[in-house]
Design a protein around this nucleic acid. Sequence first.
DNA 1: CTGTTAGCGCTTTCAT
DNA 2: ATGAAAGCGCTAACAG
Lengths: 340, 340
Amino acid sequence: MPVTLKDIARKVGFSVTTVSRALAGYDDVAAKTRRLIVQTAEEMGYHPNILARRLQKQRTDTLGFVIPTFGPRFSDPFFGELLAGLGNEAAEHDLDLLVSTRPPDTPKEAQAYERLVRDRRVDGVVLTRTRINDARIAYLLEHDFPFAAFGRTQVEEAFACVDVDGELGVFNATQHLIELGHRDIAIILPPLDLMFTVHRRAGFYRVMEAHGLAVRPEWETNGDLTEHGGYAVACRLLAGARRPTAIVAGNDLMAIGAMRAAREHGLSVGRELSVVGFDDNTLAEHAHPALTTLRQPIYEIGRQVCRMLVQILNDEVLPEREVLFEPELMVRQSSGPLPV
Amino acid sequence: MPVTLKDIARKVGFSVTTVSRALAGYDDVAAKTRRLIVQTAEEMGYHPNILARRLQKQRTDTLGFVIPTFGPRFSDPFFGELLAGLGNEAAEHDLDLLVSTRPPDTPKEAQAYERLVRDRRVDGVVLTRTRINDARIAYLLEHDFPFAAFGRTQVEEAFACVDVDGELGVFNATQHLIELGHRDIAIILPPLDLMFTVHRRAGFYRVMEAHGLAVRPEWETNGDLTEHGGYAVACRLLAGARRPTAIVAGNDLMAIGAMRAAREHGLSVGRELSVVGFDDNTLAEHAHPALTTLRQPIYEIGRQVCRMLVQILNDEVLPEREVLFEPELMVRQSSGPLPV
DNA sequence: CTGTTAGCGCTTTCAT
DNA sequence: ATGAAAGCGCTAACAG
C-alpha cells in the first residue's frame, strides 16, 4: 500500500491539511513544521496519488494526440518525429501524452475524439493533417475544447496553429526545376481533402504562371502519400504519350515511389527525369539518388504546437495565433538540368 | 457542467447508488427503474467522470509505452507500426495508451518509468528493444509492476514476452547468401547491449560454422540501427584491404545506409555486393535495388504484446509466457549470385 | 429492490 | 500557524 497524506499526518502529529499545505509549498506553515513534514514524507517514500489529485482539481494533466493512419503500417517517419517533439515538450510541462492511431475522416476517428473530449480523458488535443472541411475542428470548436493544430484550415473561427508555408515551398522547389531548364513539370499532390494540398497546389500554379508555363491537367495528379501511391501515379504519368521531364511530389514517400517508377521505365533519375519531394525525412538523404526536397522542422513544429496548447490551457495569451515556418529547399541529386 | 449521477438521481427520484447500479448493469434493480434511469441518463447526456471512477477503482485503465529514441528524429518506421498495433489492441480493451520518447539506457528513460510506476499513472507497461542487462526489467520486477515485452532477456525471473526468432532469421538470410556462392560475408550487428543482437549474432555464427566458414573478426561490426550508422560502418568495411562480397545488416535502415556506401564505392548492389536487412519496413521494397530482408510482423507483435499485458492485468493465466514469431525471408534484388 | 453510509486521496474554504 | 469539514464523482458493503 502506498503512503498517503494520512499516513504522514499520523506520523508527524499534524493534520492532513497541514501536511498537504506543507508539501504543496504554501507559506502559511511554520518553517519547522514544514521541515519535519517534508523530511518525513521523503523518508516514508511518499508520492501523491495523482488520481485523487486529478479528481479534486478536475484536470487530467494529459494531452491527446490521434495519429492518422491508413493501413496497419503507419510508415511515415514524419509522425514519429512529430510525436517526439510533442511528447518531449509535454514532458517538460509535466503533462502526459495519450496517443491513438485512427484512419482519418472515419467514424473510428470521430469516436476517438469523442472519447477524449466527452469522457474528459485529456485537457486538450493536438491535431495534425488538417482537412478542408475538418469535422474534428468543428467538433472541438463546438464543444469549446482546447486544441492546437499542425496545419491551417478554412473555418471561420480562429484557432491556434502552426504550419509550414507549403505554397512557398512548392514555389521554390518548382522554380528550382524551371531554372534547371524544365518546362514539362508534373505534380503529384496529396489527397484533395487535406488542407496542405491547397497551399502546395497554389504554389505550383503561382510559379508556373510566373514563368508563363501551363499546367497540363493530366499532369496534375493526386497520390495517397505512400511510396506505393507515388509509384502508381508516376507509372501512369510516365506511360502517357507525352512525358513530363520533372515531377514534384507531395511528400518524400511518394517521391521515392516515383523514382522507382522512373527506374522501371528505364529513366535515370536526376538526368532523364527530375524528382523533388517534401519533408526531408531521413530516407531522403539516403535514397538513390539522394532526394531533392523541402525540409520541414517537424520536431520543432511538434514542440511549438504543444507549447501553444499549454499556453491555451494556462489561459495565457498567445503571442501569435498562427506560426508559420519556412521550408528549406535541400538540393540533392534527384534533380538535374534538363538533358539536351 | 457535465451531468453527474447526482443530477440523474435527483431527476428520477432514486438514490445515487441505485442510479449507479442501474447504469452499471447490476441485476438487483427493478426493470422499470432501470429503464427509467437508463433513459433519463441518455436524455441528460450523462457520461461518467472517469477520473472519479479511476480513483474509486484504483485503476488507471491506461497502459504505458516509452519509445527508445536517439536524436530528435526517431525515424525508424518500426516503432510507428508497433505503436499502431499496441494502440489498436489497447483500444479494443478500452484502455488508453500513454506514450513518451526517451533515449534508451539513460537517466531520462529511468525517470520516465519511475513516473509511470511510482506515480501509478498506468496499470502496466510495454517494453521494447530489451537489453542484456535491462535496468527497466529489473526495476519493474522489483516493484512487482505488470509488464510485457517485445524481446526476451537473460534475467532469472520469467516474464511475458513476444519475440522474433532472430537467430533463425539471420541463419536463413546468411544461408541464402551462401547458397548464392558468397563466402566473404560481413555482418553489421545492432548495438551489443541489445538482446536481439545476441540472437542474431548466434545465428550468424551457427550458419557460418555449419558451412565451414570462418567469421573474420574485422568483419563482425556494430552499427547504431540508423541509415547513417550503416553507411559509416559499411564504408569502413569496404575500405579494407580485403572486401566482403556480402553484408548482413542488423536492420533495414542500416542496410540502406550500407547500399549507399556501396554505390559510393562504385559497387553495384546485388551484383558486386549483396546486402540483406532485417524488418522489411516499407522502404525495403522501394529501395533501389529492392532490399532482400527478413519480415517481422511488427503490427501483429504489437497486438500480441498488448494482449498478453491485458491478460496479466486481468489475472488470467497466459497460454504461453513466451511467444516466438518466425521471420520470413523476402528475397529481392539486393542479393545476387557471387560474380565469377 | 432500494437507501444509508463510508471511503478512494487529495485540495480548499473557513474557522480558530 | 493549524485543524475541522466539505467535497470532487463514483463504487461498494451492508441494512432493511
